[in-house]
């Protein structure tokens, strides 16, 4: 199977990523400011003003980040039919964008469940990860394709900026690898649209239980081991 053609339409994805990067910086900056600024020690007019500005920046930035969320359901399949074998690695136009949008939204939900919502997710990196798969990596069993994609997502740094506090929510502090494993496991699960979020939560919890195994396979780039873990658990999400 040949690689998909690049989408010739104007590319909004890097712009979305740039705005999300701004959001990430503002959120982190806001958190830092709130952590370090002695707002409660300022006289009343100043403390209200300073607090309001910081909160407003956070709200504006949060709105930017939700742009892609609505695309996720479309990207990962809508309707009532069960999603099975949903790794739609076709050569059709725009497949890489659908994949990236879906991965972005799913990672955001996983990070929320891991209590690390401020970790930065790059949709552009997800697209690059998809496009960088070799033709022979696009063939075979779902678990094999998922393993190749997982390693590609890690290499492309689809997740960035996890703080020590974020990482501490996952055994072995492997929050990035565990989050990617959870999303790729979820993509392989058999589920209806109504079960999407419950299945993603279950995939996240399963990933946490086998975090050490998943992380070891990813760190050592052991694709067969990663594929075996997907094959073992995809039917049990």
């Amino acid at each position: 199977m040949r690689n998909p053609l690049p989408n010739p339409l104007p590319d909004a994805m890097p712009l979305r990523d740039a705005l999300r990067g701004l959001r990430h910086a503002v959120r982190r900056g806001g958190e830092t400011l709130l952590d370090v600024m002695p707002l409660n020690q300022l006289p009343p007019p100043a403390t209200h003003l300073a607090g309001a500005v910081i909160r407003e920046m956070g709200v504006l930035a949060k709105g930017v980040g939700e742009v892609a969320s609505d695309f996720a359901r479309i990207a990962l399949g809508g309707g009532d039919a069960p999603h099975s074998a949903p790794l739609k690695l076709t050569a059709r136009l725009g497949a890489e964008d659908e994949f990236a949008q879906g991965i972005y939204a799913a990672l955001r939900l996983v990070l929320q469940r891991l209590d690390a919502p401020s970790v930065y997710v790059s949709e552009t990196a997800a697209r690059m990860a998809y496009l960088s798969l070799l033709p022979d990596q696009r063939q075979g069993q779902d678990a094999d394709i998922a393993a190749a994609l997982s390693l590609s997502l890690v290499e492309a740094k689809v997740l960035r900026g996890a703080s020590a506090q974020d990482a501490a929510h996952v055994p072995g502090r492997a929050i990035e690898n565990v989050a990617i494993f959870a999303v790729m496991l979820w993509l392989q699960s058999n589920r209806h649209e109504a079960e999407d979020e419950a299945a993603l939560a279950s995939a996240t919890d399963l990933a946490l239980v086998i975090a050490a195994e998943a992380d070891a396979a990813i760190v050592s780039r052991d694709s067969p081991k990663l594929s075996a873990l997907y094959a073992e658990f995809a039917a049990h999400v």
């Binding site: 419950a198 995939a203 919890d205 399963l206 049990h236 999400v237």
Partner: peptide, 9 residues
């Protein structure tokens, strides 16, 4: 019963 989401529910 061998699906996490059903087992948990």
């Amino acid at each position: 019963v061998r699906r996490m989401r059903w087992f948990r529910a």
